[in-house]
Amino acid sequence: MGDAVTEAGLKPWFPWPLARWRWWTESVPAERVAALRIVTALVLLFDLLACYLPHFVTLFTADALGGRDLYAGRFRADHAYWSALRALPDAWGPQALFAVWVAGAVGLLVGWRPFVCGLVCWACAVSFWNINPAPHNGGDRLRHTLFLMVACSASGAVWGVSSVRSNTDPRPVMVPGWPVKVLFVQLAALYLLSGYYKAISPQWRSGFVMYWASHDLYWSLYPGTAARLPVWLHQFSAWITLVWELGFPVLAVLKGTRAATLILGVIFHLGTLFTLDVGAFALYSVACYTAFAPWERLRRPFGTTARRDESPPEAT
């Protein structure tokens, strides 16, 4: 009897005891990492063309706020920071590398050599982040993990130009799931640590933090509107955030609470996107969540489905 599923991507060797840990070693439907690749590419293209490009000359040219020596101390020998822009001339280097970055993002979007395109996007992102950290925030650190995991995720197995060419096999495609798990661990660490620092902050415990944040004339995108909202609403949103962040590593794994926790996460990030000037942090975070949704349900009904005895992998 032939296999009911096709395995794509390189199955890694794991040392003991990881090799026996099903959560870590299980494969995931290829649609999940394909969706992760596509959404990541869309977010990146939006970031590049709508957020970076209009300010590019100001942010990355030597006679404005950029230049290879502006943060020269960052590249001293006792640190491992690097940037391809250090090796390129200030006159055309940033523009050339930006063009490569856009090309890498387009490659990811269409699924053309996603491993190479993912690594190109990661290298360009790190290069721009290091040469001028000022325009960046925590979301850009998160995107570095995101790009690396997209590159490693065999995301071109379906929904891409490479997969279209060999689309003669109707069986569901499964790929190694570890990049999705790494993304989950990254998000869990991000929320848990943030939750910890919030929990020891009296402002967060009292709930008034959201009042001050939403009324902050510099960081808030809607201070005038926030002033019309009742204080208890700000407090309530602070407490919900605190509980959700602290609980995420457990609640997102338990079957009964997983979907609600992930949906709340997306709402949380979209909420911060429209209320605080956090920029693409929200978009890259939401892009990470893409890998946890059951995109395989969109699979075309070829008549052949996964074996009935094979339970679908957990989203996280």
């Binding site: 290091n130 650190r141 690396l148 991000l190 640590l193 919030k198 020891i200 960081w219």
Partner: peptide, 22 residues
């Protein structure tokens, strides 16, 4: 540093002060 995956997350903790700094 080499991979750009610098950790250290707090996401608006301990919280903004009762004034904006501009």
């Amino acid at each position: 540093e080499a991979s750009g995956q610098v950790q250290g997350w707090s996401l608006f903790a301990p919280g903004p002060p009762p004034y904006a700094v501009v």
